[in-house]
Amino acid sequence: MVENRPWANFFAHLTLMVGVAVVVFPVYVALVASTQAPGDLLRGTLPMLPGAHGIENFTRMWQSGVSNAGAPPAGKMLWNSFIMAMAITVGKLSISLLSAFAIVYFRFRFRMFFFWLIFLTLMLPVEVRIIPTFQVVADLNMLNSFAGLSIPLIASATATFLFRQFFMTIPEEMLEAARVDGAGPLKFFKDILMPLSITNIAALFVIMFIYGWNQYLWPLLITTDPDYYTIVMGIQRMTSEENPQWHLIMAAVVMAALPPVLVILFMQRLFVKGLTETEK
């Protein structure tokens, strides 16, 4: 594309700008709304310029929350969300790496049967199996605990499947060379397979973290103790109140949106590094 057509250029940029505006505008509104005084958002017209109460709103939300609406301090909820998301992410990654390793590199009985069994669960989203899962978790006395929040969500057919596909692209000679070099299965996994999958691990880390962070239904079901509330369900609880305090809700929303953004920014570096330095 080396042609020089000013009008085409103009329209291309216009389209891009409109697109960006559509995406950015709601975020901007949330930011602006989080800086208003209590009554400002209920007057009918939405203010378009930042107000003066930003620090006040954020501090209040961070320190005390909206307890009468069932929302403990945002700091606590963010921490809960973080623990849950990390537990889910790390758990999912380790389990799916190991199971993909087993499925690709070991010849055991019913290998394909197990693979398809895992694959089948891909078709069942959390919501479908949520009642039986709740029953199991309740019977195991895991309600109102981090174990209950994260363990049922750890099994991941998607990640297992992706790692399986990736492992199958690694030439078989790599395994054979490692065997001749005296590396047993675990050494091969640790020294060869893991470093080679680092890009995939980074990509899945981002996806899994956001998946864990955005869990809403599951934490809502199994937590009744405010000590285990997560930020996403906290926000929902605040909005279902009779007189929602939108300035505080928006402050919580902005805080809830930050960690996933940070994870993406941080992981992006690893990503790019992985992409430029790994080669088969």
């Binding site: 000679e173 790599m174 001749v180 590396a183």
Partner: peptide, 20 residues
């Protein structure tokens, strides 16, 4: 015996070097 225990070394067609 496992390859490593046979006291042999092998050179592969596609080299099979560890890329990382």
């Amino acid at each position: 015996l496992e390859p490593a225990e046979r006291d042999i070394a092998m050179v592969f067609q596609n080299y099979a070097l560890y890329p990382h």
